[in-house]
Amino acid sequence: MHPQTLRQYDREGLVTPTRTRGGGRRYTDEDIERLREVQRLSQEEGVNLAGIRRILELEEETRQLRGQVDDLRDDLRRTRAAADRVFAAGPGGIVALAKGRRPQRRPVSTALVVWRPGSRD
């Protein structure tokens, strides 16, 4: 890519490279990907620089929104999982159960206990 083109893209805000102490531009791998996309849109698609800027802004906004949607889906899954639990009093105290389930009962004892009145002291 011609240095003048790089300067123009920098001036237009399409890419923001870091600078050396001497003012030279340093491009990251992400910057280079972005420059290639700008060049493709300009040369192959015939989009002007204002259009390219808008396309890049919309792509970034879309990326952010997709991240928010993913976060919301995770929150919804956790909320639904929590809503599927019911709390009940079981033999050992309060227990969490799935909807429609009952706490297990303690087995009824069949032991025979004989009580004999004794003398009171």
Rank of each mutant, 00 (worst) to 15 (best):
R54T: 14
S42M: 13
I52Q: 04
T28I: 01
L56M: 02
T28N: 05
R36I: 06
S42I: 08
G51F: 12
I52K: 00
Y27A: 05
G24C: 11
G51P: 09
L49C: 01
D31V: 05
R36G: 11
E33V: 12
R25H: 03
G46K: 03
I32G: 06
Q39C: 13
D31I: 02
R53C: 07
R25M: 01
T28A: 07
E30N: 12
Q43L: 15
L35H: 06
L41F: 01
L41Y: 03
V47E: 14
A50E: 13
E44T: 10
R36E: 09
I52S: 00
R36M: 06
D31F: 08
A50V: 10
R53F: 11
R26G: 07
E37A: 08
D29K: 06
D29T: 05
R25Y: 06
E45A: 15
N48R: 05
L49Y: 02
T28V: 05
E37P: 09
L35I: 04
R36T: 02
V38T: 04
G46T: 03
R26A: 05
Q43W: 11
I55A: 12
G51L: 10
E33D: 15
R36N: 10
N48P: 09
R26C: 05
R40F: 04
R34K: 09
N48L: 08
R54H: 14
V38I: 10
V38G: 00
L49D: 06
E33N: 14
I55D: 06
N48H: 10
L49W: 07
Y27I: 04
L35Q: 03
Q39L: 14
S42K: 11
R25L: 02
A50M: 10
T28E: 06
I52F: 05
E37T: 11
I52N: 01
R34E: 06
